[in-house]
Write a protein that binds this DNA or RNA. Structure first.
Lengths: 244, 244
DNA sequence: CGGAAACTTGAGCAGAGTCAATAATTGTGG
DNA sequence: CCACAATTATTGACTCTGCTCAAGTTTCCG
């Protein structure tokens, strides 16, 4: 087996360029031309893989880059005035994190690996300079950030209007569809985060999350085996996610 | 009195250019040079004032512009799957709205005037074209959007972790500091939105908002007279806003 | 001035939190 | 590779914050 082939088979391999990356359709604009991709590729840094629990960046640190997840998953969190943590997002392969740091030139979140993972570092100053020459790259980042705003607004709505069951169901559906976008199973996957993380993210206690999982399982809507989730009845899960 | 002077005195006057606008330090980057401001000014459209209840844009409409509030205030809202509305923000003079529409080339929110107000329309395509030549303009919009993301994340945290009293207190403090930024009183102001709007925004019922107002008044932390609010004890309000 | 909308206050209820005990799982060192 | 400690998850009993329903009051606006 050649080194090249070996590279392609290792999920945390960091030698693959954007042009070869299966995730580029998610994290890079489709409109960017082949030779432009090489220019983008030129500014991207690929570091060693992160182990579970390692920080990618910390709140308060100088902001210099945004990051695209290549493999594995991470959570972002802030510390509230009262000192407890608030998880602000879970990030799966192809997704871009750290956009919130741009506005204050410091990271407002910390990012922690939920499992072994690899990320692409995109130095922001170089990206903005390059995007003055590649309008579609500029456009892409405007869109990324705008979508992030919309996503946060939907999260606000979820927390503001929905019950515990609806929130948990919505999160499962969100992970499901994000998996499907990567051509993975939308009905069978492993949760890389703990019940506590889920509760923290959704504004619920661990106990409530656990109870909802049990209830959804009893209703044969999902099948739970530790962190493995199977969505047994997708339609039922969708109804569970939104009142009526 | 000259026309020019009259213009400067009317709060909804739409003839003032960015260079003369007292709000430009808020809605435009400080780093933009004087003659660059004229170029920005050249793409901005100023329409007739909106009356209370009028829509500036509607969810689902084609996205073409973002808007800076010149005078008055507006709310943005989306309609949930269940058909009820979720208010996603209140916008005061100098603040930019509509950034969420960029990612989907459609507005995801509707914007409604809470009182008579004037807005500056910033056609987005022209803005992005201009920002290829004015890096600081590009930078400014990246920052605006990033700050919006951070703001939404703080709102998520508020809804996820804080009690009714803390949420209401936080909103009052937010309005207070946004007023101060415009060199208005941070301790005495008029709420342009209804109690129902506040509750909707904060994930509370009208009754709860009303009760919190009464309680804060009984504690001599605020003085409520219909929509007029006076913050009588700013420190106490700050403690009320965050648990311990 | 009158009707509609907005606001306030009270009483009772329920969904999710807290506290607590137990069970299952993971990680670690011998 | 197993045993034990530490972490994570589940389940139950009880409590409490904020919701619902209801009635009354005030404010707004034509």
């Amino acid at each position: 087996m050649t080194a090249s082939l070996a590279n392609h088979h290792c999920p945390h391999n960091n030698a693959v360029s954007c042009g070869d990356c299966r995730l580029s359709s998610i994290c890079l604009p489709i409109s960017v031309k082949i030779d432009d991709i090489d220019r983008i590729d030129g500014i991207i840094k690929r570091g060693r893989p992160l182990q579970k629990g390692e920080y990618l960046f910390r709140a308060g640190e100088e902001f210099s880059s945004v990051y695209a997840v290549r493999s594995g998953s991470l959570k972002t969190l802030t510390i509230t005035d009262n000192g407890d943590e608030q998880i602000t997002g879970f990030f799966l392969p192809g997704e871009v994190m750290g956009l919130d740091g741009i506005g204050h030139s410091k990271h407002t979140n910390s990012a922690i690996a939920l499992e072994t993972c690899a990320v692409c570092e995109i130095p922001f100053t170089q990206m903005t300079e390059l995007s003055l020459q590649l309008p579609s790259l500029q456009q892409h980042f405007f869109q990324l950030m705008s979508k992030e705003i919309t996503y946060e607004q939907q999260l606000v709505t979820l927390l503001s209007k929905n019950t515990a069951e609806e929130r948990v169901a919505s999160l499962l559906l969100s992970i499901s569809s994000r998996n499907q976008r990567r051509h993975l199973s939308g009905t069978r996957f492993r949760l890389s985060m703990s019940r506590a993380d889920i509760g923290n993210f959704l504004g619920l206690t661990v106990e409530t999350v656990s109870r909802v999982f049990s209830r959804l399982q009893k209703l044969s809507i999902i099948e739970v085996d530790k962190k493995e989730i199977e969505i047994a009845d997708l339609d039922a899960l969708k109804s569970a996610a939104s009142a009526q």
